[in-house]
């Protein structure tokens, strides 16, 4: 499902002295089935942008097209619900949304709201829990008895159980330890590759952008200031620094190596790519030595 934002602006509490700009004239297309990362400083409008993607917010001016639904400032709040099953939104610290008595009931909550019969909703819940690695032994547990990392995964399962076509993730790994982080990022990558689910990821981790994203949007002060594939976004460190954004560690290190005089052909974004480039430079010489 494609999402198109056309000159979208959003003002918080318009018409009061408390008004503030969330988005300013943002136009962008998020292609069907893509993996898009959104980066930018805290307060740059990333979260406001996300909430337009499943019509939790309606633009103050401009239009948002989600699949074949057009959302304008005048769109009525009714009948937006079907959209939300198609575009699943996982909020930051998603474990805060858990409320049911048992894990399986909580995960089935979403599908049931969309009219899925109880039995089918539970079956979907079990499939979603299986995806996030929560076994049947936890189905009857209270979600509040789980560890923080498990709660996060149950909350994510709660969104996956709605079988969305597009999954929006707002810093899904914040506060997790490295293992938990890797597991979740791998899960999203698998969903994207094997089931063709589109992903929109908001993150501060440039490594995640480099490792997974096909396309990057850079937000600053409510504006969309740059968009393009990761290699392009990360090609200008001075520009990134100006906007308080960093390089992936591998790219940073590669630049240091280049400065020392190692002739790296281009700037790799991931550790694997960096290793491959360094090998490519060092190995031929070494083989030549051996002859």
């Amino acid at each position: 499902m494609e999402i198109v934002l056309d000159h979208v602006s959003y003002t918080y509490q318009a018409g009061t002295p408390f008004a503030g700009d969330g988005l300013r004239d943002v136009s962008v297309t998020i292609p069907d089935g893509s993996y898009t990362a959104i980066i930018g400083q805290t307060g740059s409008g990333k979260s406001t942008l996300l909430q337009h993607l499943n019509a939790l917010l309606k633009p103050t001016t401009g239009t948002v097209r989600i699949g074949d639904r057009e959302i304008t400032p005048k769109t009525s709040n009714k009948n937006l619900k079907p959209l939300r099953a198609k575009v699943g939104l996982v909020f930051q610290f998603a474990e805060n949304q858990l409320f049911e008595e048992t894990v399986e009931k909580d995960v089935a909550f979403g599908p049931k709201n969309f009219g899925v019969p109880e039995k089918e909703a539970l079956a979907r819940a079990h499939r979603a829990l299986d995806l996030v690695g929560i076994g049947p032994e936890y189905y009857e547990n209270s979600p509040f008895d789980l560890s923080g990392g498990q709660m996060r995964r149950v909350a994510i399962a709660g969104v996956l159980a709605m079988t969305p076509e597009l999954l929006i993730l707002d810093e899904p790994t914040a506060g997790l330890d490295p293992k938990g982080r890797t597991e979740l990022m791998t899960l999203f990558e698998t969903l994207h590759r094997e089931q063709g689910i589109g992903i929109v990821l908001v993150t501060h981790q440039m490594e995640d952008v480099a490792n997974y994203a096909e396309f990057v949007l850079v937000m600053a002060d409510g504006h969309l200031i740059k968009q393009g594939p990761p290699a392009e976004i990360f090609s200008d460190p001075a520009w990134l620094a100006e906007h308080h954004l960093g390089l992936p560690r591998a790219a940073q290190f590669a630049r240091e190596l280049r400065a020392k005089g190692l002739p790296l052909p281009d700037i790799p974004l991931t550790e694997q790519a960096l290793a491959a480039e360094v090998l490519a430079i060092l190995r031929p010489r070494r083989e030549a030595d051996h002859e």
């Binding site: 938990g180 591998a250 290793a275 491959a276």
Partner: peptide
């Protein structure tokens, strides 16, 4: 470290990848 749920520092990861490649 990885077995303990942690990660390996960037330079260690690079070192082991290079070692696997023969460096």
């Amino acid at each position: 470290l990885i077995d303990m749920g942690l990660s390996v520092p960037f330079t260690e990861q690079l070192k082991s990848d290079l070692a696997a490649g023969g460096i």
